[in-house]
Design a protein around this nucleic acid. Structure first.
Lengths: 200, 200
DNA sequence: ATCTTAGTGATACAAACGTACCATAAACAT
DNA sequence: ATGTTTATGGTACGTTTGTATCACTAAGAT
């Protein structure tokens, strides 16, 4: 047989091609042939590594979630060593905003998948769509740390704040994505709200 | 010729069929034939009243925006006669949450259109996607009224609050839509945040 | 009464889709 | 050395898509 090839690696390459093509044309408009062309392989190969389109889409979503997770942790790490809770929270919330091409892509495709999951049960069953968000838990804990350190205003419900902030970040992201708002203004709004949560 | 028919009315009926079909199968999966079947007319008629699919989609979005606007004003009106600013604001923000079938449909299709608008410039040019939101202006004014009446905490930036609340409402709506959160919890989070803005 | 024209039906068409099938080259097992 | 298996290419098939064409009905205009 021709040189043995790393399946996992190949699948990742193809999934990245899917992501690029979807970012250009929209996820709904991407076909197997587009993915093949973008990856520089034959249609048959896409079929070979992913038996069906649905499998490819599912893997694409997982791949995207993985890459997004990496980006978030990188962003948090970039907040410096031993940063205050406020800095970490800011990094966490800002990571979801579409400020550059990569994050625009993330937001675009995540939203695409979310919309698809409303009518596609296979997608709806995927953890990052359905499960109580890991980000929610993390953010709640961070806020709780800040509260314990006396950094927050009195009477703050850390869980309600976490949920609200994440929803706000996602909502702001969408409005940036569709061109309703520019990234700077979205970031400013987020900062304003953090200022209102943290003690002056 | 056969009985003269009200074009505008017919187009509305067909647009409603589009909306229903899209709610069931997802906007990406609905074709002209589906719309025709749902409206109980022939494919040719859909072609006749809308020359192309793109025209149909555009009209469908406008129709949806219209119906949504009506729902919001109805919700605000239902807040009672001469309600306080807080009640109006609550009505405004709650109207966007997918709490029943109709509002689920709204949220689902609006998000679908928003996603499509990222890669479709004809959709992106539509006002309710692109323009500085009317809701944002209205909400800012309402908050300003409340501030002038001394109802808000000191140092509140009404515009930043308006933008943040709308984004939060949209974000919460999406998480309800995809089943990450139930409507009651989303409403509770919204109420909590209003409680933090208004003076105790 | 005749002619025009708005409304409607049936159907045809080319393109694109996901998938299936067949063939072949070459690395591995024996 | 030979047979088996893995990786790949090419291509054909059956659907479905949006759109276009042709025909016909009946209401309004003259």
């Amino acid at each position: 047989m021709p040189k043995r090839v790393d399946h996992a690696e190949r699948r990742t390459e193809i999934a990245q091609a899917l992501v690029r093509a979807a970012g250009r044309q929209g996820l709904h408009a991407v076909g197997m042939r587009d993915v093949a062309a973008e990856a520089g392989v034959s249609l048959r190969l896409v079929q070979y590594y992913f038996e069906s389109k649905e499998k490819l889409l599912l893997f694409g979503l997982r791949h995207l979630a993985h890459r997004f997770g990496e980006r978030v942790t990188a962003q948090v790490r970039a907040a410096g060593d031993d940063p205050g809770p406020r800095a970490v929270i800011e990094a966490l919330l800002t990571a979801a905003l579409p400020v550059d091409e990569e994050s625009r892509l993330f937001h675009h495709l995540y939203t695409s998948y979310a919309v698809l999951s409303v009518t596609d049960e296979a997608l709806a069953a995927q953890p990052f769509i359905k499960d109580p968000d890991a980000a929610e838990i993390t953010l709640t804990e961070l806020l709780q740390q800040a509260a314990d350190a006396g950094l927050l205003r009195a009477g703050t419900d850390t869980h309600a704040e976490a949920v609200g902030l994440l929803a706000m970040s996602a909502g702001l992201g969408t409005s940036v994505l569709v061109g309703q708002r520019d990234p700077e203004s979205a970031t400013a709004v987020l900062h304003y709200h953090l200022d209102r949560i943290f003690r002056p």
